[in-house]
Nucleic acid binder design. Structure first.
Lengths: 124, 124
DNA sequence: TTTTTTAGTTGACAAATGTAAATGAAAATG
DNA sequence: CATTTTCATTTACATTTGTCAACTAAAAAA
């Protein structure tokens, strides 16, 4: 499959929108949601490319098209996260978290909560 | 400046290599380090583009060129990390860390160590 | 059922990216 | 010094990406 290449920026924007909703979305709704200056034309072309890459699939309801994600946000996010990790943090999640902490992105409380999550998971 | 656009994959590869060393590096050394199949030609073109973007600068030592990063890894990494955060984790560092924890990327010990770092920093 | 709207499909094109060969100039060799 | 080897700089070209406008077909309206 093609599912191991990163998406170009514009197509990713669309995926991010599709991932927000469970079901399929109408072309025009997607356009409205995105609310970047694209024309319908532009959106359609990008959607077409995403279909080719098999990132999404479409169903036609009469004359209207609807699209929904085939590749899950979960899996794509995981790939992107791992990519960031390996490129900039020597693959160490701990380094990344440390950096976030130093950047004021994390509080003691956050850490405590996550430690609890972890404990709960281990207990399982 | 141009410093707010992401680099194309190939150029990033070069930056990652340059960031590994403090000083300037010879073209041929870079090529050797990268050790992907590029020809010298290819590398040079990419280096040229990076110079244009002002991501790196070059000095010539006789007939040889050396390059070194102008944009710091630190700053680029921060940008990329924030990008990931906002795209896939609603901007919440905590969500990202939770995801890492669930993916077995983090141990209790890691968290404890980071909590200590944070404490030390706050004490300052 | 003709006309007008709409939504979808194609064809186009410029800019960016990946890759490399051709060209030029300086340095090492014979 | 003439020749060969090394680098670096240019030019080239196929793909990919970003953006549309033109063209089609179907539905709604007149």
């Amino acid at each position: 499959m093609n599912e191991d290449k990163r998406l170009p920026e514009a197509e990713l924007e669309i995926m991010l929108e599709l991932w927000k909703h469970e079901g399929a979305q109408r072309t025009s709704d997607i356009l409205a949601q995105l609310d970047n200056g694209w024309t319908l034309s532009t959106l359609k072309v990008l959607l077409g490319r995403l279909v080719e890459r098999e990132y999404i699939e479409c169903t036609r309801d009469g004359r209207l098209m609807s699209y929904r994600a085939k590749v899950s946000e979960e899996s794509y996010r995981r790939r992107e996260t791992n990519g960031l990790l390996s490129k900039y943090y020597k693959g160490s999640a701990k380094s990344l978290v440390a950096a976030l902490a130093m950047d004021d992105g994390l509080t003691q409380k956050d850490l405590a909560e996550i430690a609890n999550m972890l404990k709960a998971k281990e207990a399982k």
